[in-house]
């Protein structure tokens, strides 16, 4: 078969494939003349086609100006979060065949300021994350590292790791933040991602600065504004349960949950 014949056959096969309509929310906040609207694209799909594949097909074949943020295409970077048929999802992790719809509506994530088309501004979200000081606080360890002998290790049992492991799977995709009804009304609320990260470090046996972490979240627009809707856990693509983390954190702050955390010992040099 010649190359030309192969191409024609490929083209025919593409025409035979099931087609869906991709409705993409379009707007550009830098161009005030452009009012928000939906553009429709017809996209051929296979069983394994993801929403991101479909968007890239539309971008490559119909309109190259469609703005999308994406990177890894394997649910690791958390860049391609968007509302797909009304639910916050990762475009690269959502197969069109699983949606069982002929029309797929893609909109930018809710609760985030919009920049253009499906791209939103994550500054506020990352500020909340940074406010939680997402790193180990341990006064036994000097931050002044001059050579490799100053570096230390902690001893952790698998049980100690188990207490915070699921929360460390967070990829900061912002889906939970987008689904949170409290964030929708209160922009100062840290949101499920930041609060679950606060719990992740409080539960970590290497961290011994629980009191200062509690102070960060124990404020008027802090953890107590969570209404426990649970939508954060429902949309998380990595199986993290932020609602659980928030409830466990609340329990610890009220003194209801047991806090028998043992701080990890530093591994001594002669054991290494």
């Amino acid at each position: 078969m010649s190359k030309v014949e192969g191409r024609i056959e490929g083209k025919e096969e593409e025409e035979k494939r099931k087609k869906i309509t991709l409705k993409v929310y379009r707007t550009n906040y830098n161009n005030k003349k452009e009012s928000p609207h939906y553009d429709e694209f017809e996209v051929p799909v296979n069983r394994w086609t993801t929403v991101l594949d479909a968007l890239l097909y539309a971008k490559n074949n119909s309109d190259s100006s469609v703005a999308i943020r994406y990177s890894c295409r394997m649910a690791t970077c958390g860049s391609c979060g968007m509302n797909i048929n009304g639910k916050p999802s990762l475009a690269c992790y959502t197969k069109i065949s699983e949606l069982n719809k002929d029309v797929i509506v893609c909109e930018p994530l809710s609760n985030f300021p919009r920049i253009r088309d499906l791209v939103t501004d994550f500054s506020q979200f990352f500020n909340h994350h940074k406010k939680m000081e997402p790193f180990i606080h341990n006064d036994k360890v000097s931050l002044d590292v001059k050579d490799k002998d100053d570096l230390v290790e902690f001893e952790q049992t698998p049980e100690m790791v188990e207490k915070y492991l699921q929360f460390s799977y967070c990829i900061r995709c912002g889906l939970c933040y987008s689904a949170c009804p409290t964030v929708a009304t209160d922009a100062n609320f840290p949101g499920p991602q930041a609060l679950s990260q606060a719990y992740r470090y409080i539960a970590d046996s290497r961290d011994n600065d629980k009191s200062s972490r509690f102070k960060i979240i124990d404020e008027r627009h802090g953890i107590w504004r969570c209404h426990f809707a649970g939508s954060c856990s429902f949309v998380c693509p990595k199986g993290v349960d932020p609602a659980l983390g928030i409830q466990l954190l609340k329990g610890q702050m009220l003194g209801i949950s047991k806090n028998n955390k043992k701080i990890s010992n530093l591994r001594v040099k002669d054991k290494q």
Binding site: E219, W224, M253
Partner: peptide, 12 residues
């Protein structure tokens, strides 16, 4: 009062 103290009072 801290918010956690107010919440304790609220629940109680």
């Amino acid at each position: 009062l801290r918010e956690s103290q107010i919440t304790k009072i609220h629940y109680l």
